[in-house]
Design a protein around this nucleic acid. Sequence first.
DNA 1: CCCTACCTTGGACAGGATCTAAGGCAAGGC
DNA 2: GCCTTGCCTTAGATCCTGTCCAAGGTAGGG
Lengths: 137, 137
Amino acid sequence: MSDLLERLRERGWRLTAQRRVVAEVLDGDHVHLTADEVHARAAERLPEISRATVYNTLRELVHRGEVLEVATDGRAKRYDPNAHRPHHHLLCSRCGSMRDVRPTGDPLADLPASQSFGFTVSEVEVTYRGVCPDCAA
Amino acid sequence: MSDLLERLRERGWRLTAQRRVVAEVLDGDHVHLTADEVHARAAERLPEISRATVYNTLRELVHRGEVLEVATDGRAKRYDPNAHRPHHHLLCSRCGSMRDVRPTGDPLADLPASQSFGFTVSEVEVTYRGVCPDCAA
DNA sequence: CCCTACCTTGGACAGGATCTAAGGCAAGGC
DNA sequence: GCCTTGCCTTAGATCCTGTCCAAGGTAGGG
């Protein structure tokens, strides 16, 4: 994620300690943190960082397509740095934890034009719901 | 939806005016109301009905599998009485409105066991995101 | 090294949903 | 029919997530 910051700076993003820390926290392969979790981990390294800044930064990373925002039914949204590889999610309905799943088909292709009702469809999200091993125990 | 109430009563659901009205409001084929919309419509017929009761009733209908709860990214959840026919959703990312889509494949079958990571998967949700004709105008 | 536009801050605020304690009423039993 | 019991409903407080705001801070071009 180190080049991410470089890339954004070239696009006119001012590089601050707060933004750096948020990006570092999100770095990883199967990371699906909530905004508050991001804030907690960021605060370990930069105690004065405010919630507002974390929310702002996450919102921008999402807008710029660098991070994926995933809704999880009434719980807090989760943020997924794995935005460049298309994938779906496995969501535990007990604890809300999440895993990435590689897609094996293209659901977008499965939507016949006759059923798009005039919508301009741009995106599909597939969520598998179930109970994770930890919660099943 | 009239038999729904009978069915639930047989399973020990106490039949009250409030619950009847909520069920009536949800009746229909492509209904996707938010809890507050349900409350507003219910209140037209039963002015004293409280929001808490609407939320309670919706929660129970969802638990009993009679109504589907659909999350919509930061907006209010929507409730879908079409719970017995499997289907997916088309969601407008501007106004939050929603339409049913009949599935043309079985995404559950598309999840190889090698990728379930020990989850006991019980359900898939597919959401097509886009802009509806009204908002595109 | 300075200036300015952009960032960060913390606290107030908003919307959605849940909780609580008190009173109300369905429905089975008499 | 009427009582009784325990489930329901109510209003309002409360919680959680996320956004807004005005004031002060600072990155980085000049």
